[in-house]
Amino acid sequence: MQAYLTLVRRELGGYFNSLTGYVIIASVLLLLGFSFTDMLVKLNATPTYVPLTELFYSSYYFWLILLLTAPIITMRTFALEKFSGTYETLMTAPVGDLQVVLAKFTGTLLFYLLTWLPLLGCMVVVRYYTGEATLLEPRTTLTTYLGILLIGGLYMAFGCFASALTRSQIIAAMIGFALGLTLFLLSLRSYMPAPPTDWGAKVFAYIAVGDHMESFVRGIVDTRPVVFYLTVTGFFLFLTLKVVESRRWK
């Protein structure tokens, strides 16, 4: 446990010791700023009682931010350590492989959540100046953040897995981006017209991350997507662990 916490701290510290962390936060802030102005324009054009979270999600900035930042956040986890050689000092310290994988994942997930905090600020500002209570309900805000956490966890697991495969951060980012984009594009297929009996349509409906997020921003928590995210995240962390262990198989 001590080693795990020490590593999580180091992982988080790594973002702030280098420029990477600040650049990521700045980029996310820029995109959130765009979505914020969009929100204001929409609110000025037509009066609405739709929660702000839903309004934010309808602008699709969420996906842009997630698809772009997830690989950048996670690319350094293993690839950088392998490249600089510190992987050897890390793996010869008395820590287990599982501890290392979980610590890296936790570190990236915490940093990712941190980049989403300004969104809360944006919404509070709108709520404060409009004085409309329905715009910002604690319940929908909470479920929105639950969605951000669950989908983010899955994308962080994709990224950690990609990073464990290579010693090049660029390649790690590309693999992570490809994995994330694939899932996103597959989820779009659920919008295509298909007979409801088609098994493919059922599968695509089950993995439709876009639909899942839409329910989360409306305040609906369905257990099926929750189970989906937890299991797939777990599966990719398991794969990452196997990649880390694979140096012992050679």
Binding site: G14, N17, S84, T86, Y87, T92, P94
Partner: peptide, 28 residues
């Protein structure tokens, strides 16, 4: 064991004292 690999890889972004304390904590 205390092992120093070839080319002595270190976390270049950390301060000396922080690094050593991090390593000590990592080693239990």
């Amino acid at each position: 064991i205390g092992y120093m690999p070839e080319n002595n890889p270190l976390h270049l972004d950390m301060r000396v004292r922080d690094y050593l304390r991090f390593r000590a904590r990592l080693k239990g």
